[in-house]
Nucleic acid binder design. Structure first.
Lengths: 335, 335
DNA sequence: CTGACTTGTTTTATCGTTACCATGTTCTTA
DNA sequence: TAAGAACATGGTAACGATAAAACAAGTCAG
């Protein structure tokens, strides 16, 4: 492997000068620069980032932990971050936590061992305490899609309550008054907050929340189907369904079809997340957009701000969801 | 930052011994090991992988280039690799090439600068020559979803021709004889090979390939719609359509619906890739499974084999696609 | 013409490990 | 019991860079 030393010898300068040329860190006479460049080219020199990082105590690398690599959800987030980081010449070291406490911890430790300049974490299993402790150490940290009061400055998340509100509000605006709700797992913050938004929209419109029109699922398509069937069994009456996510909405639509209900003619359906397939369904699924890409970008901006002192960007901690109106919702029929 | 030196002092041993304990690289008396471990715990020592890599000339890191991070395609591939590499305690450094020659080259160089032990590349814009040259250097290399004769030992790809064959063969088996084909971009190897498979299936069944029943699209949903409309305009007659990928199939189905054709009752449709949303469509899309996860896993196995001398695994260069039969294909109506 | 600056460069210490060689100690075994 | 093997550990030179201090030469105002 060619070293900076060999380059410096061939160019007839010291290795410090070569380092300057490589890093553009200090003034170097044009003539010297050219000599160095030529020597590098001739020897086929390749900068050793490892050695540089060790010496400079900076890796220009952001450690990134996501639950999974497959599926498009986290991919979008990483893509958002990548775009921002690329411009700043920072790189990402990606690890997966698989929603397992031990693994998550292990990967975070590994990233720190690699001396990442900062971390972006989407972790689900480690405790708040662990993260709080981590945040108080010297490595800048952004926690995505999780809100922890004590270190809220390090958190970025979506306003799920607002999303739930917007979904139901959309249905109300279209004249629906009997609105069923297929909730996600209510032991999860997201599930709970979305439901809270639903309730707020109802109450704002003077509609009282009817417990019997709600079904608690688990964010899976299967539970959307189950929800519709359960409501049917109870003989519930409604003209619209708001769902905790798109998978459940998709399941619900299938179940409604089985019950010979047309969507959206008989029943309107709204989802949440705006996953890829939402637009491929027929009719296209009306849903709430979960701006993962933007969240990823924002996380990266915070990192740039905190770890590299770039203060030129606009920053927020809470991102706002938007309603995407497609084909599964429709003006309520007149009574 | 706590160093190995400080640990060694506290434990009353030399730094060499501490290194031995950390790396489990040599026998150390149990009593000494305990002393060292305690010192590490007490000082809150964290191994510096950078320094270790520099000294040992090994990073245990695989450089990974994919075209994009978003979408589930490459995510699945990375997930497949990650699972294999995790078991071997290797990590992935992910970079994106965005199908741009300059970017791809740049990222590959960056990974080499970081002294990755090996590379897994899914690149589309760099030339074969560049890759051939790279393969002949000292860094082990696996090229995914691309076949380059001169370095076929480094390539892993799907048998697209077989996939195309299976799709059309499936239609023929169901009694279809007039089969339209919506091709992908034919300047791409994948598009060409899938079409070739289609032709082989036809010829094997004694059906002659009818140029007018083919439309060249570009792998986008839009072009699937366009294809069906173009065929309709020409007044073509067919009972089944094979598509170059699922997006085009989805577009085709929408166009067929517009033409008041029922899928699969009037027209059978088969896609290619088995993307996530294929199973969410109603009816579910019959398609050819592109085993990205398995491809990623295989790439990782090759790396383990080549870069780390693990010879215990079964390896292949060409993976086989499978037909996934869902609801968009159906026995041809009797004449 | 001189002292203060600026510019360009070298010198040398340092970053935190690992790898190799040397050395001392403890088992085996004939 | 002596010799050699196996075990346990220490010393120290790399690994390939950067950074801070020191120095040399050129510029310029007064």
């Amino acid at each position: 492997m060619v070293t900076i030393k060999q380059v410096s010898e061939m160019a007839g300068v010291s290795s410090a000068t070569v380092s300057r040329v490589i890093n553009n860190t200090d003034t170097v006479k044009e003539k010297t620069r050219v000599k160095v460049m030529q020597a590098m080219a001739k020897l086929g020199y390749r900068h050793n980032v490892l050695a540089a990082s060790l010496a400079s105590n900076k890796t220009n690398t952001i450690g990134y932990v996501v639950p999974e690599l497959h599926g498009s959800f986290f991919g979008s987030m990483m893509a958002g971050s990548e775009k921002v980081l690329r411009k700043a010449n920072k790189h990402m070291f990606v690890a997966t936590g698989h929603s397992d406490e031990k693994l998550e911890t292990q990967e975070i430790e590994a990233l720190l061992s690699r001396r990442c300049d900062a971390l972006i974490l989407h972790v689900e299993a480690v405790s708040d305490e662990y993260l709080i402790h981590l945040a108080q150490q010297d490595v800048p940290l952004v926690i995505v899609n999780r809100y922890i009061q004590e270190i809220e400055e390090n958190c970025i998340s979506l306003d799920n309550e607002l999303g739930g509100y917007l979904a139901t509000r959309h249905l109300i605006d279209q004249g629906h008054t009997q609105i069923a709700y297929l909730a996600g797992s209510l032991f999860k913050a997201d599930g709970l907050n979305r439901l809270a938004g639903h309730k707020r929209a109802l109450s704002e419109a003077g509609i009282s929340f009817d417990e019997t029109l709600m079904y608690e699922g688990d964010f899976q398509a299967q539970s959307g189907e189950a929800g519709i069937k359960a409501l049917a069994k109870q003989g519930q009456c409604y003209s619209a369904v708001a769902c905790a996510n798109d998978e459940m909405a998709s399941g619900a639509i299938n179940a409604l079809r089985e019950l010979k209900k047309n969507v959206p003619e008989d029943i309107s359906v709204v989802g949440f997340d705006n996953v890829d397939f939402a637009s491929y369904l027929t009719p296209g699924l009306t849903t709430i957009d979960y701006p993962m890409r933007e969240i990823g970008a924002m996380a990266a901006r915070w990192i740039l701000n905190r770890a590299y002192g770039d203060h030129k960007m606009e920053l927020t901690h809470i991102l706002e969801p938007k309603l995407i109106s497609r084909g599964t919702t429709k003006q309520a029929a007149e009574n």
